[in-house]
């Protein structure tokens, strides 16, 4: 199973959505509500489907009148949890032509939230986890927390999973103190958290069991010749020998 399979086609994706995003129906503006509902389903049940969410943004790109700022923020919040995959930037790339909303009663939250989300994203991408948590818990992000991430089931745990994804390959042993700043958990809770991962606490340190990536070895890379590289030569040889025997 390729590493991208779950990203490309999440096992949680319903058939209806699969049909929608793989065919031309994805361009039909009247389908936007189906995809938006699916996004809210994702936020409630801690699922994630980058492709379906990109399809929403695509519809917004082509039909600016559909644009719904809350949906956009939710898509980006979801994309934060996908790091180190580039989902956040992929979503962002479709957001360029944001229309100025005519509805003045309800100010568009996106212009104020975008820079914050971008900074949060770049902290995560650069593994600056303590800074991420500091910003996320700050008053600056209050509206983001109260209106969006609170609705997103398991958001903080998803971020912790992002952290784990980059700690696991890089460390054999990491101090409890350091890991607690990365996970934004009190030292006492780190032990219970890492237990689920089969990591062990020994004194002041967390021991990460050997895995493919934190078990390092000096190697000599040998050349690997694919059969297809030789197809021409062999084909030619076969042809000339055929001629010779003929």
């Amino acid at each position: 199973m390729a590493a991208t399979a779950e990203w490309e086609t999440p096992s949680t994706r319903p058939d209806e959505i699969e049909n929608l995003v793989s065919g031309v129906d994805r361009y039909n503006p009247s389908n936007v509500s189906i995809l938006e509902d699916y996004l809210y389903h994702q936020t409630r049940s801690n699922e994630y489907d980058c492709f379906a969410n990109l399809a929403i943004l695509k519809l917004y790109q082509f039909n600016p009148q559909l644009y719904n700022p809350d949906v956009v923020v939710n898509v980006l919040v979801k994309a934060l949890t996908a790091i180190p995959f580039p989902d956040f930037n992929l979503c962002f790339a479709l957001l360029g032509e944001r229309p100025t909303l005519n509805n003045q009663d309800e100010p568009d939250p996106v212009p104020t939230l975008l820079p914050l989300l971008t900074t949060l994203h770049s902290h995560l991408l650069q593994c600056r986890y303590p800074k991420f948590w500091a910003l996320f818990k700050s008053s600056e992000c209050e509206s983001l927390r109260d209106n969006y991430t609170v609705e997103c089931a398991g958001f903080e745990d998803s971020i912790r999973e992002v952290v784990i994804k980059s700690v696991r390959p890089a460390f054999k042993k990491i101090s409890v103190e350091r890991l607690s700043t990365y996970l934004d958990l009190p030292a006492a809770e780190v032990a219970t958290y890492v237990e689920k991962l089969d990591w062990k606490v020994e004194g002041q340190d967390v021991i990460i069991p050997p895995n493919q990536e934190n078990h390092i070895e000096a190697t000599v890379v040998r050349e690997n010749v694919q059969f297809s590289q030789l197809s021409k030569i062999i084909g030619h040889a076969a042809k000339t020998s055929a001629i010779a025997t003929a």
Binding site: A170, F171, K172, K173, I174, S175, D205, N214, H215, I216, E217, A218, T219, V220, V221, R222, E223, V225, Q229
Partner: peptide, 20 residues
């Protein structure tokens, strides 16, 4: 590389010459 507490251990993979 891998970080083991306060120590960083480094290894290098060398590539054999490519002839093919």
């Amino acid at each position: 590389f891998v970080i083991d507490g306060n120590m960083v251990h480094v290894v290098e993979a060398t590539v054999g010459r490519r002839y093919a």
